[in-house]
Simulated assay, not measured.
Amino acid sequence: MEEAGQSSHKPSLAKLKLPPPAPFLGLDELSKWPLYRATITEFVATLLFLYVTVATVIGYRHQSDPKVFPESSQCGSVGVLGIAWAFGGMIFVLVYCTAGISGGHINPAVTFGLLVGRKVPLIRALFYMLAQITGAICGAGLVKGFQKELFNRYGGATNTVNSEYSRGTALGAEIIGTFILVFTVFSATDEKRRARDSHVPILAPLPIGFSVFVVHLATIPITGTGINPARSLGAAVMYNKDKPWDDQWIFWVGPLIGAALAAIYHEHILKASVLKAMGSFKRNSVANGM
């Protein structure tokens, strides 16, 4: 029974045809509706993401402000844990809702990582990034429009480097945090795992959202957690003060480096190692007459 099970499993892996790398430019997509539908999806998803998460941060800072609620404590607000859940939960929900249309990127760093990994062409990546940035600005703008006084009082939920940490530490935190996120995206959408385990495509949004959650727990004290250049830029544009702009480069350079490293690690180290190991196994099998 065991041998039969193994023999039935091997052909499926042997016959698995991995999709070719995405074309570099992808100019032919400009004449097709799916590109524009996916771009609109990324815009709306990023808008919703910023609206919920920025509103959560503003609400937390207001509820935990001793000047407003002198008798309250941290238990009277969602706390840092609640903020992390808001970010991770929204990514889980939005990836689940949009993965079948746009891939559920909702983050220029994710899009950049997939571009480096040859999963999306350049034209689609540029369209996505523009949609994500404009969506983020609109999402943060909605929060400011509804709660202008609180938005301005509590810093617009912008990402800045905590004064207790150096910018080098903040940059490292953004690189590592984004590496974890993008590495999770590649692992959760890996073609071989999808073919081997039918539940993987269904559960893919869960580990992606959970990676955002745990990274926020680790890096909120350092930078407020960026790992998403659109999220950082959208809040900074609406708040428009010196400190968020002075630190803004960290929330672009760090995530883009982390995303590129994750793509290279997954696509050219892990997957290449697997292919070499499989080739070595096949050669040994032939040599041993198996």
Rank of each mutant, 00 (worst) to 15 (best):
V78R: 10
E29T: 14
T56H: 05
V57C: 03
P23Q: 09
L27W: 08
R37N: 02
L47W: 01
K32P: 00
F69R: 05
V80A: 10
M90W: 07
A86Q: 12
F69G: 02
Q74H: 08
C75Q: 13
Q74A: 11
H62Q: 15
V95E: 12
K32Q: 06
S31D: 01
A45S: 15
A86Y: 13
L50A: 06
M90E: 10
F24W: 11
G89L: 10
T53C: 15
P66F: 07
S64L: 02
G59I: 07
L35P: 08
A38P: 01
T46W: 12
T41Y: 02
E71R: 07
T53P: 00
Q63N: 12
G79L: 14
C75K: 13
V78D: 07
V80P: 00
F87K: 00
V80Q: 03
E42R: 03
L81R: 05
A84K: 04
C75Y: 13
A45G: 15
L35K: 01
V93P: 06
E29K: 14
G89Y: 10
V44A: 10
M90V: 09
I40E: 00
D28M: 02
R61E: 06
V93W: 07
W85Q: 08
G82S: 05
G82A: 11
Y51I: 09
P66Q: 07
G76T: 04
P23A: 09
R37I: 05
L81C: 13
I40Q: 01
P70E: 14
L94N: 04
